[in-house]
Write a protein that binds this DNA or RNA. Structure first.
Lengths: 291, 291
DNA sequence: AATCGAATTGACTCATAAGTCATTTTTTCA
DNA sequence: TGAAAAAATGACTTATGAGTCAATTCGATT
């Protein structure tokens, strides 16, 4: 629906400029000329709104890069540079969202958001690891955490420059630059001139279980299945939608647990499968969640 | 008074854990067993409280490193590593404050705080620039922004690791590591293999007019007083100089402690003041250290 | 045009938290 | 010891903003 999107966009702008707590629902409503009550017919709560924002934008910004990674015609180095470039382009395109995201300032309220943020960070690291291994093979292993850590810090800092100033930095240059710096630092490790500081044990909070190489693709598919389901639900008549969102939320919550109860997931999916318009989306999601 | 300090410390812990807006004055009062009204007799407002926190801690954390920079017996490289080390040690010691600071989440409310934050960032950059120039001279100029930017991003990211995990990272290792990475990246620029992306124009928001800022001047004065003292000592006959350097080092060490013992400082200064040629420098330094 | 249901509204409630101040407690000192 | 001064208290006021809902408007259908 269109008004929903308008709200999301207005909210993201305001959150980016003034911060989450400093922006009232009234302001958001005013900025697009609707009433507060109307706003609440699209989003159950302020928290629901910001979560929806993350759900709406995170794919847009972060997943575009992964697709480039599949292009087999480039050297690993160029491919990685290209992926960073695409990422920087995405950041420029969704500046407001990135600004909001960078502020942080939100996570502590909401379990759900914290989990989301953790997942995103984990994905960044597993993506970095994947690419480093493609570049250097297994010999990178002893140094991978130091390299990943420095890489993400350089990447993030240039990203902040990109969104917070009116510079004419080119995503292409930035992509090449970041890769160049990674490689310099890596070479130094290989030459035995630096010793690594970080190890698996220490970086446990940053690693996310990934089922080897197919991880990203399967991740993407799962993500897509979720998106489709939520979109379908939201496009339904409001009366029933709330209940279905609840069920979907319950499933997602269960999946995020360290030991998800398959029966609960199965049951919840069954409930949704009974709804006429959702059959396709549910079976698609089920294939991803319960292989 | 002591209660004031207790409030500051309680507040910084709570702000670090729950965030500024999520911590109420009542909670702060409760946590040290006084009433809210009492709290307001020490700080006019919540904003006044957070500003006082910044005023209380920022010197403690950031200025300790600058003093180390004056020791003339080390190579520029080792000296810089040592400065980073001291910085990391400070961060460990004032973990809560750094956590609070890292959250940000505050600046937009208060003009005064925003200015403060801006000034601190400016100081970091001017310190970095100073050290890079000491390391490489003027040939660093075309690359200095890129190097400073990457340095601060690597430095900041390891700092965050230090405060957010229970790792056993050693400040000494971290200091050496950061310097090592700076030098690798710098060498690559010198070899002409990388091109710089950032320039003065683009980085204007990050450079601060140093002379305009009161705090910076007062800090500079202190640094100047130290420099003068060390210079004078070094210019003396070597026989006695060693002893005086020891005393001066002992003062600097004391000053870097979280709870410096004023009496010790006073005593040490007194010892130096008895030396004929140092009277002027000592009184100059004393004015800075014991106002 | 009349009717019905869905969408929209904004005045309302409720909760929270900053900041105040009359009152009480503690300290000081003659 | 007792009076005056200082410090501490917590109930109170006030402001803000999330979330609700009865009333109203809008729009589709016959």
């Amino acid at each position: 629906m269109n008004k929903r999107k308008a709200i999301l966009e207005a909210a993201v702008d305001l959150f980016a400029e003034h911060g989450y707590t400093q922006t009232s629902m009234q302001q958001i409503a005013d900025s697009i000329g609707i009433s507060k009550g109307s706003l609440y017919s699209f989003f159950q709560s302020k928290e629901d709104l910001i979560i929806s924002i993350y759900e709406h934008y995170q794919q847009l910004v972060f997943e575009r890069a992964f697709v480039v990674g599949l292009d087999g015609n480039m050297s690993p180095e160029d491919r990685l540079a290209k992926q960073f470039q695409v990422q920087f382009e995405g950041i420029l395109e969704y500046k407001s969202y990135m600004k909001m995201h960078m502020r942080g300032e939100t996570a502590k309220n909401s379990e759900k958001l914290a989990a989301m943020e953790h997942r995103m960070r984990g994905r960044l690291f597993s993506w970095l690891q994947h690419n480093l291994q493609r570049l250097y093979g297994n010999r990178i292993d002893p140094y991978k955490w130091d390299l990943m850590w420095m890489t993400q810090s350089i990447y993030t800092s240039y990203m902040m420059l990109l969104i917070s100033t009116e510079s004419d930095l080119k995503p292409e240059d930035l992509g090449k630059h970041v890769v160049r710096q990674i490689m310099i630092l890596a070479d130094d490790f290989f030459e035995g001139k630096s010793a690594p500081l970080l190890d698996d044990e220490m970086m446990k909070p940053f690693s996310v279980d990934m089922d080897r190489e197919g991880a990203f693709i399967s991740f993407e598919k799962r993500e897509e299945a979720w998106t489709n389901l939520y979109n379908k639900i939201h496009s339904m008549k409001s009366g029933e939608a709330g209940e279905y969102v609840n069920i979907a939320d319950r499933i997602s919550e269960e999946c995020r647990k360290s030991k998800p109860d398959e029966l609960i997931i199965k049951g919840m999916l069954r409930l949704l499968a009974d709804v006429d318009g959702l059959k396709l989306e549910v079976s698609q999601l089920e294939k991803q969640l319960l292989p």
